[in-house]
């Protein structure tokens, strides 16, 4: 499991970095799917198979397919790729890089103070369902409302 966790983490990191420095949209999308799938493996390693399934089906499946469809509609060709390459100036990365570095430093410095190891205990679908349709029922309703609102908004916005 440990090996699984670290190897999947490494893949996720590399894939993500590839996304943000890639110039081709479709390539970036494929890297993103790889990143999401490796996160799903991490979930599995952490004893959350339900979350892993959702990550693979909803994120890597549905949402990314949505992206893919839009890419196809936009039909961005070679011209866009050249443009992307032109925008990739190193000077552009200095400010955001410094800020992101500081932020990462802040995160890590708060996390390195404790030393508790994880003993992954599998959380079954049943437990989550009992929680979801018990104490978190209202949150489920709100989520459904949010999805409905997103549906209507997307329909309205994408209309001619």
């Amino acid at each position: 499991m440990t090996l699984l966790f670290y190897s999947a983490g490494a893949i996720a990191l590399i894939a993500t970095l590839s996304v943000i420095i890639s110039t081709n949209v479709v390539h970036a999308l494929v890297y993103l799917i790889i990143s999401l799938l490796s996160v799903a493996v991490i979930f599995f390693a952490l004893g959350a198979p339900f979350a892993a399934m959702l990550e693979a089906i909803v994120y890597a499946g549905a949402i990314m397919v949505l992206f893919l469809f839009v890419m196809m509609m936009l039909n961005l060709g070679q011209a866009t790729e050249d443009e992307e390459r032109a925008w990739m100036r190193p000077s552009l990365w200095i400010g955001p890089g410094v800020l992101s570095g500081i932020l990462l430093l802040q995160f890590v410095s708060t996390m390195l103070t404790h030393d508790v190891t994880l003993a992954p205990v599998e959380v079954s679908v049943r437990d989550i369902s009992l929680l979801l349709f018990g104490p978190w029922l209202l949150a489920v309703e709100l989520a459904s409302m949010l999805l409905l609102a997103g549906l209507i908004a997307a329909y309205h916005l994408a209309k001619k």
Binding site: G95, P96, L99, S100, I102, L103, Q106, S109, T110
Partner: peptide
């Protein structure tokens, strides 16, 4: 976005260090 993140860094920095 950069201003937003700069503000975030400052606020978190105040909390952490």
């Amino acid at each position: 976005a950069i201003s937003l993140v700069g503000g975030l860094v400052i606020v978190i920095g105040l909390g952490v260090w």
